[in-house]
């Protein structure tokens, strides 16, 4: 039997996998790595960039607060005055647990993976709200270019720290680029603003020993796949059914692989059942096939919102492996 890592490589290289890759199994997440403050359930925090996040009790997650009082950047032309990157350097002792974890990973079996979030696009709307960020791309393109460059600089500085301390061989990077039905910005705009940013970021990781780039965008983004390939993404995680995944595999398989085709919304809800999960998993496996495809929920980490969902999805994939391999 192939190791998880070998099986993943066979799947994305068009070789001979001996089973389906089971969701996130190939990524061993080093979550101990220091990163900016993240909001927890029931909390309100101000992160290192000055962005206020709140997570009301009983909600699925946290979100940035954008009323006038809390918005970090109210006028894009003044970003230099209001946007101040935190230091990417953390005291050595903050790395200790992460280094220990990284050293304990059998890299023949799994990929030592660092988690990076939020992404560049997300940073722009966390700082200034989604609507302002999207309009600024039209109204003040030069300032947006400069702001994005500034955000990229920070990301590269942080990337250097991750690499120096942990030598990851996989990066799992979030940046939601669309809604369920469309990308947030047109392909032309994406090419102008975000392609160059990610070429720098993913290029830097790849030049420094990272073998695998997994990018999360649980959305429609089929129109952006050529840019994903150009910026060096190996696996697009979160691909929703609205993208027509089988068609994407036919068109781009070999250049990029697709992880998802099971929308979290339809399996990860209070009334979930193993039967629903199996049905959706079966559909995905049968229509997408064995190569360039990893079945899994579109959710952006290795757990579900509701207890039991992730595990049940794993079981469904095991069943499909028995049936199809």
């Amino acid at each position: 039997m192939l190791t998880k890592r070998q099986n993943l490589m066979e799947t994305i290289k068009g070789g001979k996998p001996d089973r389906f890759v089971k969701q996130y199994e190939f990524m061993n997440f080093i979550m101990e790595a220091p990163m900016g403050a993240m909001v927890g359930p029931g909390q309100t925090i101000v992160n290192d960039w000055g962005i206020t996040f709140t997570w009301p009790e009983g909600q699925l997650g946290g979100f940035p607060v954008h009323d006038d009082e809390h918005k970090v950047l109210k006028d894009i032309t003044e970003w230099r005055k209001f946007v101040k990157a935190p230091s990417a350097i953390y005291p050595e002792e903050r790395w200790a647990a992460a280094i220990e974890h990284a050293n304990a990973i059998d890299r023949n079996e799994e990929f030592a993976t660092c988690f990076v979030a939020p992404g560049i696009f997300e940073m722009t709307h966390h700082l200034m709200s989604m609507e302002d960020a999207l309009m600024a791309l039209y109204e003040e393109p030069e300032d947006m270019h400069d702001l994005i460059d500034y955000l990229v600089e920070y990301e590269l500085a942080y990337a250097k720290e991750l690499i120096d301390h942990l030598h990851p061989d996989c990066i799992f990077h979030h940046d939601d680029w669309g809604s369920q039905r469309s990308s947030f910005v047109s392909p032309e705009m994406f090419e102008e603003f975000f392609l160059p940013a990610y070429k720098k970021i993913y290029g830097f990781y790849k030049a420094n020993g990272v073998e695998l780039i997994v990018h999360h965008s649980d959305s429609y983004a089929a129109n952006l796949v050529p840019y994903m390939i150009e910026m060096g993404i190996d696996i697009w995680q979160g691909v929703m059914t609205t993208n027509n995944v089988p068609e994407l595999i036919k068109k781009y398989g070999g250049q990029i692989s697709f992880m998802g085709d099971i929308d979290s919304g339809v399996i990860d809800f209070p009334g979930w059942t193993p039967e629903i999960i199996f049905e959706k998993t079966k559909e995905a496996c049968e229509r997408c096939g064995k190569l360039y495809f990893i079945p899994g929920a579109s959710h952006g980490l290795n757990f579900g919102c509701f207890p039991g969902v992730y595990e049940s999805n794993d079981e469904a994939i095991d069943k499909m492996s028995k049936e199809m391999f």
């Binding site: 999207l134 309009m135 039209y138 109204e139 039905r181 047109s186």
Partner: peptide
């Protein structure tokens, strides 16, 4: 129809 995106809608409305 998917010919334009959210930013185009926002600036038109503005």
């Amino acid at each position: 129809a998917g010919e334009i995106f959210v930013p185009e809608m926002l600036i038109a409305a503005k």
